[in-house]
Design a binder for these strands. Structure first.
Length: 272
DNA sequence: AGGCAGGTTCTTA
DNA sequence: TAAGAACCTGCC
């Protein structure tokens, strides 16, 4: 099917923004894998895109995934060029980034894995886990088999040794424990959608292998709470270099997480 | 060859 | 409560 998008939307920027690990350039378009769904999407020009899914699947899944009901143009308009020149430049540069609505379970495991790893290494580990514990759902535009992200039950069938075999290193035991917690019902990620930000943070920090950075990534990308502001080494460099008087968190509330994405993407692309 | 990568836990004071 | 060390693995 073909859709037309008026708001900010840039496939390459979304793929490179660091919020998703299964969204990659593929043939003459991009492949996106989320949970047990695969999408091939190709830009046609003039805001038009060709999608490999049915209209029904778009309406019921991908439309939400791409957060089509939120205007990122309006969020960018909160930035005042004269007041915050660096963020303004970053937002112009990053125009097209959106915060995807991804699954809390998939994001939790992905960001536990992410610690002290670079993005290619994170992606490689996740693909190994999917191939080992998920199931085949499609063949992508380059002819490669595509595997679903394993459900908690599927992932719980892997031993710590098998997880370790996915290049998780010392994170193997974190992933294993999180999986057991979810499968046992001790952790109910779905019900956490109802609790407030502070309570959610406390719940996440109680998980083995989850600290402040990973928890904030889960809150922003897994629960789509756009005010969460993960601080990694890149963001800390930006805050130190560009915001000695402090970032204007009060001004951008409740969209600080979107601003974080612009800062992250800009700093990574420019070494600033 | 040694250091570091989108951190967190464990140990020590 | 707060620093500092240890941690898997892969890639410069």
């Amino acid at each position: 099917m073909i859709i037309e998008i008026k708001d900010d939307f840039d496939l390459q920027k979304i793929a490179d923004s660091g919020q998703c690990f299964r969204f990659n350039k593929c043939a003459d378009g991009y492949s996106a894998v989320a949970e047990d769904k695969y999408l091939f999407i190709k830009e046609l020009g003039e805001g038009k895109y060709e999608l490999s899914c049915s209209e029904d699947e778009y309406e019921n899944f991908w439309k939400q995934y791409f957060d089509m009901d939120t205007s990122y143009r309006d969020i960018r308009a909160l930035i005042d060029e004269s007041e915050d020149e660096y963020l303004y430049r970053a937002s112009e540069f990053g125009q097209g980034i959106r915060i995807l609505r991804q699954d809390p379970w998939e994001m939790l495991i992905s960001f536990i894995i992410s610690q002290r790893k670079n993005i290619p290494a994170i992606k490689a580990s996740i693909e190994k886990i999917c191939a080992l514990a998920g199931h085949k759902i499609a063949v992508d535009a380059e002819g490669n088999d595509v595997y679903s992200f394993p459900t908690p039950e599927e992932l719980s069938k892997l031993t710590v040794a098998q997880l370790s075999g996915c290049s998780l290193g010392y994170r193997d035991k974190y992933v294993h424990q999180a999986t057991l917690d979810v499968v046992s019902g001790a952790v109910d990620l779905e019900s956490w959608k109802e609790i407030d930000d502070d309570a959610l943070m406390q719940k996440l920090l109680a998980l083995y292998g989850v600290g402040v950075k990973v928890a904030n990534c889960e809150i922003l990308f897994g629960y789509h709470r756009l005010d969460a502001f993960p601080k990694d080494v890149w963001i800390n460099k930006v805050l130190d270099a560009q915001y000695p008087q402090g970032f204007l968190f009060g001004k951008y509330k409740p969209y600080n997480g979107v601003m974080q994405q612009y800062l992250f993407f800009y700093s990574r692309s420019n070494g600033l």
